[in-house]
């Protein structure tokens, strides 16, 4: 497909989805708690944008609703909640320790290539503008896993978790123009409850460990193994 033959909407969709992937890498490399929250919010904004544009482009009304749902949940509520937690426990400036960031970024690049490879058989069946986005959504999911694995602050893990959710949502938008509304609502409800439970956890952790480092969570293991 040729970029100049597309209309403005389509070009915007592609640019925004490229930015989503960029945000994923940014999340992977950022160490300050407050910046990761902002980056996550920016990624969610881009996803809302893509969903809205696809809704207009494909004339799918229910996609507009899920865009609205995402806007409220992932652009406003969750970043606000995390912000509050970070302020309350005074960890805005805290930096997460990253072990060999260069290696992690390289691994991220390798994962992205792998995802493009996996997505090939799926993309063959997609017509329309969302075709290249499948691989991007898959990459977002996988990079979310990588964030979860490489970070040791609980709040960064929450961000990784939510980034995975973003990727899944994007996958549904790009491959199938969104899931049926009832499923979208169900998933959004689960994400909401998860966010609240994460919030509860921070208080419980504060009480028991006085720290949000998941490195403290290492008492349960197999004997001396």
């Amino acid at each position: 497909m040729n970029l100049t033959e597309m209309n403005l909407f389509q070009q915007a969709i592609l640019t925004a989805s490229a930015m989503v992937m960029f945000m994923s890498f940014l999340l992977l490399s950022q160490s300050r708690v407050i910046s990761t929250i902002h980056t996550f919010a920016a990624q969610s904004v881009l996803i809302v944008l893509i969903t809205g544009l696809v809704a207009i482009e494909e004339r799918e009304l229910h996609l507009a609703w899920s865009a609205l749902l995402t806007l409220v949940l992932k652009v406003i509520f969750i970043p606000w909640l995390l912000h509050r937690i970070a302020r309350k426990f005074r960890i805005q400036r805290a930096a997460d320790i990253m072990y060999s960031p260069a290696l992690v970024m390289l691994a991220g690049g390798a994962i992205a290539i792998f995802c493009y490879y996996i997505a090939l058989p799926i993309e063959r069946y997609i017509e329309g503008i969302t075709r290249p986005i499948v691989a991007i959504s898959m990459t977002t999911v996988m990079l979310g896993f990588l964030i979860l694995i490489t970070r040791s602050k609980a709040i960064s893990q929450v961000i990784g978790f939510m980034a995975i959710e973003n990727g899944l949502f994007l996958a549904a938008v790009s491959a199938t123009q969104g899931m049926p509304m009832i499923v979208e609502i169900g998933v959004a409800f689960d994400v909401l409850v998860a966010a609240i439970i994460f919030g509860v956890f921070f208080f419980q952790m504060k009480e028991s460990f006085d720290s949000f480092d998941v490195d403290h969570l290492n008492q349960l293991s197999e004997g001396d193994a």
Partner: peptide, 12 residues
């Protein structure tokens, strides 16, 4: 502490 650790692992 151990139960919070277990719940966190379970959740994530």
């Amino acid at each position: 502490p151990t139960s919070i650790e277990a719940a966190w692992k379970y959740f994530v």
